[in-house]
Nucleic acid binder design. Structure first.
Lengths: 185, 185, 185, 185
DNA sequence: GATGAATGAGGTTTCATTCAT
DNA sequence: TATGAATGAAACCTCATTCAT
């Protein structure tokens, strides 16, 4: 669509996005945009050139994160065991989310209209998860009455549960939540 | 601790708290304190007289909510069926949270140090939940390896999952998450 | 309409308005709002409490100025000689405008939608000028084909002409412009 | 003075100047320089290559406009009727100014030091107007006590008066102002 | 010469908090 | 005690200007 960015511009855009990820993860979405600029090593004007409002930046971070999830899901498909593929993917994402503290925050952050962001990435993510879901369902490793939408929602719930649980109870808590997805033996 | 407030002062405190609940739920924790004052029908000075900082107000909202949860849990104990008591409590809370859009938001709101808030109410909430948990476990309605801490964490996760899921998938999503808590077969 | 301001608030509002008049006159409408605050001896927040945007402040200055004109016009009516009343008023205003350098600037300042500002004051000003106009017309001192609207427009033109003319030619220039209003002998 | 520009550079300079005229007329002198570049269809760097500061660009626009006036005045000299030549010129300029909304704005724009701009063009404009003035004075069509300086100042005033007057009163208002220049019968 | 990305000072505006009324 | 006006730090955002491509 938009003409391809100049090489340096593209590099900066990525640096800003990465910095935003880190900063918002560490300090919450209320962190000043200037902190993002500082961490990216660019002037504040550069941030606003690439993302014309703070909300746009927040959305971009979220989109990036969802894109990453989709990629992960696609990669997980390589695992031959259908159940392991799906649940391995879910566990990995939850672990990473809890560690980086960002996914949950960004999603729940006030003001970001999640559904509007979804536009393009939604299809990509759900598609990738669906592949895992269908195979796992066929293999009898997944409750037959849930589809990709429910799986992603449960994933979100698991991430939040992990963040809330004290360290000692975290692993068991996540296991419990994800267990709900498994087919009754 | 603090000297008993005059009757009108106590009433104001409650009105402010209620207004804060509504406003932060509807507009996110970034909403200006003055919006809370307006909704409570008091001057902004009154808000700050009762809650010396915005963070204190946020904490009070959270505490209030947790206290409400604890009360709910205690009330649920009246239900004779142990399983129904626990799961009825959980479902009710999730439904209410999703509807009021508040619990999840307040918890995830950036900057509120959840653990510090817990001080007093933590014991109260966990105690009330524990009563439900022990009985349900004895009755074979709950996985034997989870305690009140995990149950509350799963509750948080379920609330978030419900908020994230599209309307049509919400009920099933919640059922799935809570299902993880039930004893196998 | 709006409840009467507290005494101190009213005093501040006036100080801000006065300061804005001075600052914009001296440095142009592009002067920073903070300069207005400084000159008024108040915090910048106070300026924005009274005038929620810079444009609102600009409009208020203009309204104030027009109100001043109207008052002047009413005062001029006391002069018994009908012609002297009208032309004395016009000359006085032009002289003052050129000196304070503000009227012309404020009017021509980009972005201020003059017509929208007029709302209330327009009637007040035109009414006051009309009184002078009618009497002067009856006395044969004014062209019979012009009304208050034309007179005010000519007044604006004369102010600008005065600002543009070099010092030496100023008086004659103004005389020429206002002469256009006199009845042909 | 400056070495002759390459053909394409000269063309760019002209396009920028024209664009600046339009943009500043339409959006006021506060319009961003980038808007000028966009309208001219060149990069912003090109604008700054030709006009090292925004103020220089503003001045160039003004000079261009004054040069246009001078040219107009010279062309008007062709008209044999001395009075018609002068007043036709003045009326035409006012009409054009009001229509393009630009002359008045550019002149009144804050920050432009009008006198400094005048340097070269001043003589050119006054010279051209003087020719019209002298002939008109000799022909008894112009007040004998005004020279080119006053005439130009009145022209400025008439333009502003026209801009201020409501549509219906515009023609009469301009007539009134310019009438002041005519010799008393 | 032309381009447009980068810069960062500075402008407008918001909002938590204080304090005179 | 309650009020809401005042405060000013800090947030978001713009834009004149520079400079690598």
């Amino acid at each position: 669509m938009s003409k391809p960015l100049r090489a340096d511009a593209r590099r900066n855009r990525e640096r800003v996005l990465e910095a935003a990820q880190d900063v918002f993860a560490a300090e919450g979405v209320g962190a000043p945009t200037e902190a993002v600029a500082r961490r990216a090593g660019v002037g504040i004007g550069t941030v606003f050139r690439h993302f014309p409002t703070k909300e746009a930046l927040l959305e971009a971070v979220l989109v990036e994160r969802l894109r990453g999830l989709a990629e992960h899901a696609r990669a997980a498909y390589a695992e031959p065991d259908a159940g392991a593929a799906l649940f391995g993917f879910l566990e990995h994402v939850v672990a990473q989310s809890a560690a980086k503290n960002a996914f949950a925050d960004a999603l729940a952050g006030a003001g970001v209209d999640v559904s509007s962001v979804f536009g393009e990435v939604r299809a990509e993510l759900l598609g990738a998860v669906e592949a895992l879901v269908l195979r796992a369902r066929d293999a009898g490793a997944l409750r037959p009455d849930v589809g990709p939408v429910e799986v992603v929602a449960v994933l979100v719930g698991a991430s939040h549960a992990a963040r809330w649980a004290p360290e000692a109870a975290r692993a068991r808590t996540v296991a419990v939540v994800l267990d709900g997805l498994r087919a009754k033996r």
